[in-house]
Design a protein around this nucleic acid. Structure first.
Lengths: 208, 208
DNA sequence: ATTATCTATAGATCTATAGATAATGC
DNA sequence: ATTATCTATAGATCTATAGATAATGC
């Protein structure tokens, strides 16, 4: 499985460390997340990722094709849970749109700021705009559309023209993603409290 | 002057182009702004900056000590106008705090999104957090404090405890900076309209 | 003489491959 | 035999300096 801690096949690692319990590929992803979010993607070398994961630079290529694959995997893993949540809320007819929008905002902030290394910070990397990460962009566009649908379904949103609805959606989405910047400059703050306050603020923006 | 267009002292440039009317250092700053915001800081080579400015890679060192100096100069030039505006508004006793907060938000968004190449996007570069840019961080902290003071001076803000005021300030500041992300994903939008809508939204967040 | 630029390049990386090695599995 | 790792390195950069060159200024 890779996670078993018994004797392992293959030449031992040069720098032994206590078994992390993670499969080597997962160790690489964790290391990359930490380095990409703090130093940036371009500034992070394959050597830095590999050594932090406990192996030599060249050994990394046994598990991934290079840095790019690591970033693509991290991006998708970051946005997918939010989208899952959004789909469930869109399908839930029993609750008001206001209620579901609030819940989506809160969950999204929790996910963006919750992890050990500010994973949401990956969104901010300039390299992410490249077409190589089209998969991530598609998922993110679908998430934004879920926000739009929920805002349109609120009492205040129902009367908006399309351009006004788009503006409102952009402001709410901007608030949620702006949270990444706030979290970056003050990572100590209680996330769950902050997530609720942000959801409150989002509803105020959506429902003027 | 450097901006005169007559015959110039020194060896001619290898790749002649129509005179930009800018001094060489300014040409370098413009080139760096464009490349840093689109490709990122670490991914931008000194060669790319110099060639875009119309000179060879080595000639750049006649004007700047390296990439770092370019980023530091760009960052400060981006935040300084906002701070100037904030200081003026703080000193203006004739207007209500709500009015002045709205105006600060609107102006800030205009400045962040207004320039030709999304200069606000520089804030998002991971390298910016480094202590080498302490000057920028100090100016930004002062700007944030101006937001805090104006929020505290509003009718709704006057009754807040310190921690609640800080939270409110972070949300407003996060909304304003989140605007950079929105602008990045849709640079075509009318900036002045968007700036007013964002200022409206900020007041709603500040004054719940 | 002064200046702004150029060409050339040394030294320091960084990536990705080739081939060796040290475990376990059978 | 299979596997996971290692060491070594070729080739491709990228930065920053040294020294040459082609203008204007006096």
């Amino acid at each position: 499985m890779g996670t078993s801690s018994g004797r392992r096949v293959g030449r031992p690692r040069a720098a032994q460390r206590p078994d992390s319990g993670l499969a080597p590929r997962a160790e690489l992803l964790v290391a990359a997340a930490e380095l990409f979010t703090t130093r940036g993607y371009a500034a992070t070398t394959t050597r830095a990722v590999a050594e932090r994961a406990g192996m030599r630079q060249a050994s990394m290529y046994h598990y991934v094709s290079g840095k790019e694959e690591l970033l693509a995997a991290l991006l998708e893993s970051t946005v997918t849970p939010s989208l899952t949540c959004a789909r469930e809320l869109l399908a839930d007819d029993a609750r008001t749109a206001e209620d579901r929008l609030w819940e989506l905002c809160r969950t999204d902030v929790e996910l963006l700021c919750g992890g050990p290394h500010n994973l949401g910070g990956l969104y901010l990397l300039p390299e992410v705009r490249s077409e190589r990460f089209a998969g991530f962009h598609a998922v993110r566009a679908e998430l934004k559309d879920a926000y739009r649908q929920l805002i349109a379904a609120t009492a205040a949103g129902g009367v908006l023209a399309k351009s006004a609805l788009d503006l409102r959606t952009d402001l709410v989405f901007g608030l949620i993603e702006g949270v990444i910047l706030v979290h970056r400059s003050d990572p100590e703050r209680s996330v769950s409290e902050f997530a609720r306050a942000t959801a409150d603020a989002a509803l105020r923006i959506a429902g003027s």
